[in-house]
Design a protein around this nucleic acid. Structure first.
Length: 367
DNA sequence: TCTGGGGTCCTTCCGCCA
DNA sequence: TCTGTGGCGGAAGGACCC
């Protein structure tokens, strides 16, 4: 889904169409207010003070050099007049369900990839294998267009699709013609369409791997494809080296994962200001207990218990540590989670101030 | 005034045990 | 009794993704 959160917001605030808008923070503070004349007044990025980041920016906002993950304070310097809306996850989840249902009406085999992204298996959908005139991919192109039309009918939102022989290429292709694009790639298109792209476009090559590849003189996927497998294995280890090689050649045989059980559930929060274990003890204790309660609520609502309870701390210097404890029996009540998390906390040196605290339940079992 | 929140998966290390 | 080996679960950290 294109600029998903922002696009959902534009549906309810159509007067923002075409303007630079960012979604970020979640506080009530930046909610639009209706003025006496009936028009709405929106918060400006310049009005923001705090530790939030941008979750989504409209394409107009991206033109100012702001985008997802950027701190809102930094974004405010670049685009002070961009409008700011708090995230409304309930609403986004609702639209997420709607777009997935609209896809499923036509192609029911779907792998969930989060709130705004899915893989769709088109192989066995009627018409997918048909040629149209001399176009061998004509049938699947029409099918993809039909799916996109159905999503727009159901949600009013645009999306971008890549239609390819596997998931790896589909992800890359879906980003070639954003927003509202449809890209069909076959094996023979690899050299012309994929190899010129930076390695970073491969799902699974992040900033660290990209930097290491750059140090080897590899910038593009084509340059990666040209490296001997043995060289990649020597530099990146057997598993990752081989995977890099396969990925550069566009090879991927992972099937769609149509259902998955959750592995963990967690809650975490970044404080408005850094807190000290001693000086802010009472406040920290309240936050800690609340996080444990939230994890418990999440577990119970979804019918799980966790056998491993863990905590996450981020210090003022952004260093992060985790501690976890595996229990004899899975638990899902707030007291047991809070108690186990408390034992974890005792194993951490708390002399530096904290900026984040989190509580996690892992090794989940269905109740 | 830098840097969210919710996840998954992998690697490494360590202790325990056969 | 000593030493090596290998599997396994648990713990910690890190890379990556949406």
């Amino acid at each position: 889904m294109d600029a998903f959160y922002a696009s959902v917001e534009l549906l309810r605030y159509p007067e923002l169409q075409g303007l630079p808008v960012v979604i970020g923070g979640s506080g009530r503070r930046h909610q639009p207010v209706v003025q006496p004349d009936g028009t709405r007044r929106f918060a400006r990025l310049a009005d923001y003070a705090g530790r939030g980041v941008i979750t989504t920016a409209t394409y107009a906002a991206r033109d100012y050099g702001v985008g997802s993950g950027m701190g809102l304070m930094k974004a405010a310097q670049r685009a002070p007049d961009a409008l700011l809306l708090p995230a409304d996850f309930e609403r986004y989840r609702d639209y997420s369900r709607r777009f997935k249902a609209a896809v499923a009406e036509i192609a029911p085999v779907i792998e969930d990839r989060g709130i705004d992204e899915i893989f769709i298996e088109l192989t066995d959908v009627p018409g997918a294998q048909d040629s149209v005139g001399f176009d061998a991919a004509g049938g699947v192109r029409a099918l993809a267009q039909e799916i996109r039309n159905n999503v727009r009918r159901a949600t009013g939102l645009g999306c971008s699709m890549g239609v390819t022989p596997n998931k790896l290429l589909a992800k890359i292709a879906s980003e070639l013609d954003k927003p509202d694009g449809l890209t069909v790639l076959v094996e023979a298109d690899l050299a012309a369409r994929v190899w010129p792209l930076p390695v970073r476009r491969i799902n699974g090559i992040g900033p660290k791997a990209a930097a290491r590849l750059l140090a080897l003189g590899v910038r593009t996927i084509g340059e990666l494809a040209a490296r001997p497998r043995a060289e990649l294995v020597a530099h990146f280890g057997r598993a990752y080296g081989q995977w890099l090689h396969e990925a550069a050649l566009g090879r991927d045989d992972r099937p769609l994962q149509t259902h998955g059980e959750p592995v963990s559930m967690s809650r975490e929060t970044t404080f408005e200001r850094d807190l000290h274990a001693v000086r802010d003890r009472a406040l920290l204790a309240r936050i800690f207990t609340r996080l444990a309660e939230q994890v418990a609520t999440d577990l119970q609502r979804k019918g799980y218990a966790g056998r491993t309870i863990g905590i996450k701390l981020r210090f003022e210097d952004f260093k992060t540590v985790t501690r976890e404890l595996t229990l004899a029996q899975p638990v899902s009540d707030a007291q047991a989670i809070r108690h186990a998390a408390g034992l974890c906390l005792k194993r951490v040196d708390l002399s530096r101030r904290l900026r984040l605290l989190g509580v996690r339940a892992g090794s989940l079992v269905r109740l």
